[in-house]
């Protein structure tokens, strides 16, 4: 499955990217593993994951449209 990934806040600093397209990602666990291999410093970063704007907490099988955002701890207001 193809994943359209968006990175926010310090995660964009860590990876040097704000957006990425990744291929052959069957589920979110594979996505995390793939990202940690690409960007070892991401493994220690704290973030939540949103699939199509909804936060997901468990491994999720990816089908269809996969807009995934990595959200570091919020600091608005």
């Amino acid at each position: 499955m193809q994943v359209h990934l968006t990175l926010f806040g310090q995660l964009a600093d860590i990876t040097g990217r704000t957006e990425m397209i990744l291929h052959d990602i069957p589920d979110t666990e594979t996505l995390i593993k793939t990202l940690n291999e690409m960007f070892p410093s991401l493994a220690n970063a704290k973030y939540a994951m949103a699939l199509n704007k909804k936060v997901i907490k468990e491994n999720t099988i990816l089908t269809g449209d996969n807009n995934i955002a990595l959200l570091p701890p919020f600091s608005g207001g």
Binding site: F8, G9, Q10, A69, L71, F74, S75, G76, G77
Partner: peptide, 14 residues
């Protein structure tokens, strides 16, 4: 509302 938006909105301050 202030407490909730600070905790729940995906906003970041640099």
């Amino acid at each position: 509302t202030v407490e909730r938006l600070k905790a729940e909105l995906p906003v970041w301050g640099r």
